[in-house]
Nucleic acid binder design. Sequence first.
RNA 1: GGUCUUGUGGCCGAGUGGCUAGGCAGAGCUCUGCAAAAGCUUCCACAGCGGUUCGAAUCCGCUCGAGACCUCCA
Length: 500
Amino acid sequence: MSKLQIYNSLTRKKETFAPINPPHVGLYVCGPTVYSNVHLGNVRTFSSFDMIYRYLIFCGYKVRYVRNITDAGHLTNEQGEGVNRMESQAKLELLEPMEIVQKYTVGFHQICQLFNLLPPNIEPTATGHIIEQIEMIEELLKNGLAYEINGSVYFDVTKYNQNKHPYGILSGRNIEELIAGYRDLDGQNEKRNSIDFALWKAASPEHIMQWRSPWGMGFPGWHLECSVMSTKYLGETFDIHGGGMDLKFPHHECEIAQNIGTYGKQPANIWMHTNMLNFNGQKMSKSFGNSILPIEMITGNHPLLDKGYSPMAIKFLFLQSHYSSELDINIKGLQDAEKGLKRLMDARSHIEKLTAKGTTISDIDQQIESLANACKSNMDDDFNTAKTIATLFDLATIINSLKDGIINNNQLHSDSLQLLKTVFNGYLIDVFGLKPMEENTNKILDDVMNVIIQLRKEAKDKKDFMTSDKIRNELQAKGIQLKDEKKWRHHLVYLTQMMH
RNA sequence: GGUCUUGUGGCCGAGUGGCUAGGCAGAGCUCUGCAAAAGCUUCCACAGCGGUUCGAAUCCGCUCGAGACCUCCA
């Protein structure tokens, strides 16, 4: 049996996964900043880590998954940049910061549900851990790695580096170059050194979010919350820390510095970074005009889209590439994913109708077993979902052949049939978190449909194809697809239902 | 400018130094009243130039191109 290998950004190689306290695994993922809508790129990242979380569970680990909500810092009001929230307006016209936080936190959770992402075990907020953050700053001050100026506290990167702690270990930067790079920028700064970063920022009186601290009223620095909350819930050193590639520097670099500066330890054994999402060859961004919100993707309410796509199809498209690769999507890719997903889901439901009459182990049985094993070893190879999906497609071909009688069911042993069920449910449903299309559970509708199907069959038997085609077409228009030699079934109605 | 990543067939995308990735699309066939679905067969690759090697899409170098980060960002 293969063992799980994970690419570690810190060491830049694949490593055999060995949790600190098996079977327990600590997983920390940087969550969203909730002052605007999450976009589709965020969804890819959180889908990737959802799959990783699910696969760890699938492998029998007991995972504590912590994903933070960043709700402190430079909150602006809804109108975004260009609007000075400090200008005096009637109090009620301004959104309360926590109102914004609430709105976008709820929105984020809704999107997570639509994409069938499991909630983390703990979802801590930055504002809920101000005291702990202040405590960590005090430790850093005590360790001589931070200094206070005018009510703000900064991390002393140069000093940290002199203590043989390599700042830049994760992102491959060296501080001389960084300093040189900053020198060109404006130097109006109270920091001792341009690469120092804020642990605590003094707040001007009109700043809307501020807390009391030993250094006066202020708010915590941007990198501190993750250090504090990962340590609090997972320990000073835990197994996996994840986040988007764009957080590698400076966010994760600073996090490491803060943790080492405080506890003298690397916070995480493994750092994982998921890659970015492009649309039509470009990074999704407002300035390119190709930034699409998840909800727009689902409803199709966007000029660049021809129609809406189901969250499952979108997620399937994500899973067809490796989490660490850049992914470029477009309309055609979405359409392809829709069809591909349907093929796999159809194969999955066909398994239920198969019968196994094999008495000995046939070639087919052996093929099924080796493909099932391949799924595991593909996933164990740094969560290679693309390859695993390819393997599932190979199994789908076998299933379809069995269904159509092209492969005789005396070639299929009952153990293999069971294995097919286990694999399709295990990977497609449990690990990838893909939901099957909705099955009809309405008994009356079922009975009515059987009457209609019977009528159509009689028309067909009389060669009255006008009538039989009419029935089929009318049903199609109502979202029910009728295929000959088959039962009728519902056609993807659930999506639109979910949106309204 | 610096750090890092990357360049695969019509599109999207895996990939180990030597063996068909896969999906969707295209072509042909089977099935079919017609569709749909499904099955089988098939076409189209590894940016360019060198090098290492018995052998490289896979390793090294250069050229060209793309992207991310260096400022909040998944």
